[in-house]
Amino acid sequence: MLKGVKLASVLAVAAMALTACGSTASPSSSAPTSDVKVGMAYDQDGKGDGSFNDAAYAGLSKAQTDLGVQIKEVNSGSSATDASREELLTLLAQDGYNPVIAVGFAYSTALAAAATKFPDTTFAIVDSVVDAPNVGSLVFAAEQGSYLVGVVAASASKTGHIGFIGGMEIDLIKAFEAGYDQGAKSVNPNIVIDSKYMGAAGDNTAWNVPEKAKAASAGMITNGADVIYAAAGGSGLGMFQAVKAAGAGHWAIGVDSDQYNVPSLAKYKDFILTSAEKRVDTAVYDVIKGVVDGTPLTGVQNFDLAKDGVGYSTSNSAVDAYKAAADKAAADIKAGTITVNTK
């Protein structure tokens, strides 16, 4: 830690000397500065989902304030190809951005190619594994966080009936459902769990169809569900709308970010019991800090409960009643007495 601060300040002085007075960045003299330029590439439309991508952004902006790094964000747009994604990463690396962080498994082929072209740049990828010496692969034990919110959901449900809304029907998201189911059944073995995915594998609209998620959630509520968990990116908004429309006594469970505190979801916050956090922010911050400190984070980095890489949020005090049960489950998972399914 101390080494990091020292190195950062050396870098900062060097940066100031090099750029002289030409720099317009960081007007405040007390804020740390660094000449590290971070390039972040989101997939498709990028930021604004209040969930996965915004969690990555939270880590980036924390690094900007705490470490004084410069940032650049790009997104791949719809109908992106491996070629166009590779070009984005190449442009970033070419312009001196280091680390270059790709958010989403869709980048795996493109990142592998870009990482070979720029062996001196540190790359990182979220949700996938790219085997190269200069790449950090950030993977998450999402099923563990989902287990905990499953425990909360089953404990909070009065009807013994809960729901799950998934984004695209792929293994990555099925792990969320598997953990949630297992957690809920550990509390109430007879619980009824409705499940619905917003799109088949390969259907890129799955992450961005809130109206579909709203209809599906409303259907589950009509059938008697009183707690719903959505792991569906931007589609999750529809679940919040449906739960709010159903009124008091119904709860929504968020995903990836602590959605209780997401400004764009403030309207629904009273209905957001907790969120299964996937700490993409921590992972992104660690990658940037590694580069700032001169000790880049490479290889497979598994962010699980033990590492605080996943968890459940407690910002809404309504969750306090179920904390004991969830914390006990968390301790058991960490101790290895509970193994959480991924499918």
């Binding site: 498994f105 996938s128 692969s137 029907e169 088949a200 390969g202 259907d203």
Partner: peptide, 18 residues
Amino acid sequence: SYTIVRTSVGHETSLNVR
């Protein structure tokens, strides 16, 4: 989607990509 996810035509070409 069905062919790639549920039949032997589909393989996991890299983590999370089929």
